[in-house]
Design a protein around this nucleic acid. Structure first.
Length: 839
RNA sequence: GCCGAAGUGGCGGAAUGGCAGACGCGCCCGCCUCAAAAGCGGGUGAGGGUAGCCUCAUGUGGGUUCGAGUCCCACCUUCGGCACCA
């Protein structure tokens, strides 16, 4: 093959990209002879344009896939499109182009961009969530949930985004604002579909421990999100009525200190127990609370307010008559919507008690510093008892010994918890329980561009699921996009009016669509069997490929997408569809690429388009640059000049192959003795580089993997200047340089491999072998320190003994000068590396 | 407030407790050229010294160690998550 005169990516890259597709190298089939490797990058929303964030993400995925092929794995590396969602619909309202028209165009554009980056996918497995062939099975998933009692409908105060005109899941509300458009979210009472994710809360939490190849950061975020609290539910009878108020507390041990009860303003008992005298002020308070926005309400620096209901409860342990208040610092959505207020043991209750003159009792005393420890430690020194202004009793939230607590007196906090739960249960006044912060997943969306929820409502039969054989419930295409309306589906008579699958009578279809997170909660399973028309996927195919061995994506999905996907996988496992309990064995979350300190986005106008760079410098240079820009798990600031350095490097690699350079088997393996000193040095560098690049790819340190290949290229350059390119050592280094760079810069390495006599595609070669013997140093630089300061460096043979090393160190003139005639007290020796003389 | 991560040259960053600043960007000098681009070679933390070299230096202050960017304690700053969650 003729070598090009100069490195010219614009010529070689498109040609090789075509060849890779034609050779079907990355099209995966089950293969019993090789271990499988399922490599997956989070599928994108087809906005139409790839940006540098995508580029970083997909390049990493591509390196991992290509590397594992060279390591001998049977690799599946699929790609698809998370194509339903608001942006397409909002664009349709704006310019009238139907999402069903725009989406495939965008997908085509993005596919072309992916291909121009040299990214190789198994396009036979491509899926797009907006196609009926896919969402048929999303609807099937809904029916599965419904069958298993995990999908239900209820009226609830939902988070409503007034701009996007739809409800949002709790997870999509950030600081009281819509995650997507930033508008302030308001509460609206609507009948909505939910998935019962809370019944999997324990399993979702506990099996996080099995995900030891996930970043701790993500596991912690999920743990916080699920928010398991262990404690007790205790019933407080309302004096003079049949009502009881159940409260949840994590500190049942402090129940003897409960001096009042607080209900959330929305608590259903408020209206029933409020006395006539207090009615007016309670009503006023409830109304004011309901007008407040979520953000005002939840601000913790706000001074606490509340109002007495006039009613009294009885402390179940002391039988003391205690006041019942309402206050908006108690949330109706958490626990039972009511609390036992223990001002002596809780700062919020303490502040409230001080403000309204309610009694404060101390029930826990810190254990003195020398006091005995228990399971919950001794008293916690970080929370000392505090007397606030006007208080006769301190507030102490830590652990310690019970006082003023009847039978609990003298017990430690931990013992008291166990004892009180036993007493409560024996006397039927309460029970030990666990609650979660996690809410059920609200999946209804009042929007058009999503998978219709497959339910119909019949006057006779009520709510009826669409039978499986009638799926998919197709999204009608002939709709009006009018700004400010409800979902266009509501106005499509032919869609809404249907017959009841049970009685055949007239019925109406559900017009809400599903949250797009439902679409993406199972796509990794569809990739295992993408053309199946009988099932969402065949269990035995999923069981071959699952779990995903390496999942790669942005940390912004650390909670939502990953939690939902884990939930789906567990439900499908329970349904016998798949064996694994966890979908993603190893997770890598990459950082964002920023420009001017901000995430790249169209609205900020700081997007660096992929096309331009690929056209001017080539895909390989662009790929190397995004790998080199910094540690991939961290955010990286974009720098326009950096990519040129990568182009220069590739030009240098290209020139290393000028002249008669032959790679592959003919590169020659000789016994070490055949080599000159320079040869051995080059081979040593080569082997050290093999080790470094291999280790770095394994731990996702692509920036240093690229550096290592640069160092090898620099060593080759120096060797070549002195000895020329013909010798076997150089040829071996040349071949291995290409192999090591192949996953990262696939085009130039393929081209040079072939033009230098390599057989077949470089991407089907075996990954180079590290030879520790050839990598071993012959000479070492012995660092000599005096009192820990470097004073000399000595070139020594690698096999020197300690005695020889120390002698040489003491013999150094520079060392003698610093010894200044004193005798060494101690000598520390690190074999082959360092002598430290202490005087 | 709680939890977590990170602070290293002009910049991105590198460094199993053992030579701080690899590699790259930028900048400076030189070679090549009529000239430029490209390329190649050299230099580039700060301060001092003609020089051999010396001193200082990894957010701040302590500590452990023969030896600390790395480990421990306290603090400062930035970022991320959670947050009136009982």
């Amino acid at each position: 093959m003729n070598k090009q005169e100069r490195y010219n990516p614009q010529v070689i890259e498109p040609r090789l990209q075509r060849e890779w597709v034609e050779s079907r190298l990355y099209f995966a089939q089950p293969n019993p002879d090789k271990p499988k490797f399922y490599s997956l990058v989070m599928f994108p929303y087809p906005s139409g344009d790839l940006h540098m964030g995508h580029m970083r993400n997909y390049t990493i995925g591509d390196v991992i896939a290509r590397y594992h092929v060279m390591q001998g794995y049977n690799v599946m590396n699929p790609m698809g499109w998370d194509a339903f969602g608001l942006p397409a619909e909002n664009a349709a309202i704006k310019d009238g182009i139907h999402p069903a028209v725009r989406t495939p165009d965008n997908i085509e554009r993005m596919k072309e961009q992916l291909s121009k980056m040299g990214l190789v996918y198994d396009w036979d497995r491509e899926v797009a969530s907006y196609l009926p062939s896919y969402y048929k099975w999303t609807q099937w998933m809904f029916l599965l949930m419904y069958r298993r009692g995990l999908a239900y409908r209820k009226e609830a105060a939902a988070n409503w985004c007034p701009v996007d005109r739809t409800v949002l899941a709790n997870e999509q509300v950030v600081d009281g604002h819509c995650e997507r458009c930033g508008a302030e979210v308001i509460k609206r009472n609507l009948v909505q579909w939910f998935f019962r994710i809370t019944s999997y809360a324990d399993r979702l939490l506990d099996s996080l421990d099995t995900l030891d190849e996930w970043p701790d950061r993500v596991r912690t975020m999920q743990r916080n999100w699920i928010g398991r609290s262990t404690g007790a539910e205790i019933s407080f009878p309302v004096e003079g009525t049949d009502h009881t108020i159940p409260v949840f507390t994590t500190r049942p041990d402090t129940v003897f200190g409960a001096t009042f009860v607080v209900l959330a303003p929305e608590h259903p008992l408020v209206g029933r127990i409020t006395t006539a005298e207090q009615r007016a002020s309670v009503q006023q308070y409830v109304e004011r609370a309901s007008r407040e926005t979520e953000i005002e309400r939840l601000s913790s620096d706000k001074e606490k307010t509340g109002v007495f209901t006039g009613a009294y409860a009885l402390n179940p342990m002391t039988a003391e008559r205690i006041q019942i208040w309402i206050a908006d610092y108690v949330l109706v959505t958490y626990g039972t919507g009511a609390i036992q207020a223990v001002p002596g043991g809780d700062e919020r209750d303490y502040d409230f008690a001080l403000k309204y003159g309610l009694p404060i009792i101390q029930v826990v005393e810190p254990i003195s510093a020398s006091g005995e420890a228990n399971d919950e430690g001794a008293s916690d020194p970080s929370v000392a008892p505090v007397y606030k202004e006007g208080a006769a009793v301190p507030v102490y939230t830590g652990y310690g010994v019970m006082v003023n607590s009847g039978p609990l007196n003298g017990m430690t906090t931990a013992d008291a918890k166990a004892a009180i739960i036993q007493m409560l249960e024996a006397e039927d006044k309460g029970r030990g329980t666990i609650i979660y912060r996690l809410r059920d997943w609200l999946i209804s969306r009042q929007r058009y561009w999503g998978a219709p929820i497959p339910m119909v409502y019949c006057r006779e039969c009520g709510e009826v699921p669409v039978p499986e054989e009638q799926l998919p419930v197709e999204l009608p295409l002939d709709v009006e996009f009018t700004p400010g309306g409800e979902s266009p589906l509501t106005y499509v008579e032919s869609f809404v009016n249907t017959t009841c699958p049970q009685c055949g009578g007239p019925a109406r279809r559900e017009t809400d669509t599903m949250d797009t997170f439902v679409d993406s909660s199972w796509y990794f399973l569809r990739f295992c069997d993408p053309h199946n028309t009988e099932e969402p996927f065949a269990p035995q195919r999923a069981n071959y490929w699952m779990p995903v061995d390496q999942y790669i994506g942005g940390v912004e999905h650390a909670i939502l997408h990953l939690l939902y996907s884990r939930y789906f996988t567990k439900v499908l496992a329970d349904a016998g569809m798949v064996d694994v309990q966890e979908p993603f064995r190893r997770l890598f979350t990459q950082g964002m690429i920023t420009k001017g300190g901000a995430k790249m986005s169209k609205s900020k106008g700081n997007v660096v388009p992929v096309d331009e760079m690929v056209e001017s410098l080539g895909a390989d240079a662009a790929r190397l640059f995004v790998l080199f820009i910094g540690p991939p798990e961290e955010d990286a600031e974009w720098n326009d000049r950096g990519a040129e350095g990568m182009y220069r490097f590739l030009g240098r690699v290209w020139r290393l192959f000028e002249g008669r350079v032959v790679v592959g088997s003919s590169g020659g393996e000789h016994a070490p003795g055949d080599y000159s000193q320079a040869d051995r040095d080059l081979l040593r560098k080569m082997h050290l580089t093999i080790k470094k690049v291999t280790d770095d790819i394994k731990r996702f340190h692509f920036n240093t993997a690229v550096s290592a290949t640069m160092e090898l290229a620099n060593a080759m350059q120096a060797y070549r200047d002195a000895h020329g390119p013909e010798k076997a050592a150089y040829q071996a280094a040349a071949g291995n340089l290409l192999l090591l760079l192949a996953p990262m810069a696939p085009h130039i390495t393929e081209e040079l491999w072939r033009s230098s006599g390599g057989e077949g595609s470089i991407h089907t070669q075996s990954w180079p072998h590290f030879n520790a013997e050839l990598a071993a140093a012959e000479k070492v630089t012995l660092v000599v320190q005096v009192n820990g300061k470097v004073r000399d460096r000595l070139e020594m043979s690698a096999d020197i003994t300690q005695a020889e090393a120390v002698q040489a160190a003491l013999g150094s003139a520079k060392v003698q000068q610093h010894l200044d005639g004193k005798t060494p007290e101690q000598v520390h020796y690190v074999p082959g590396r360092l002598v430290n003389i202490v005087i």
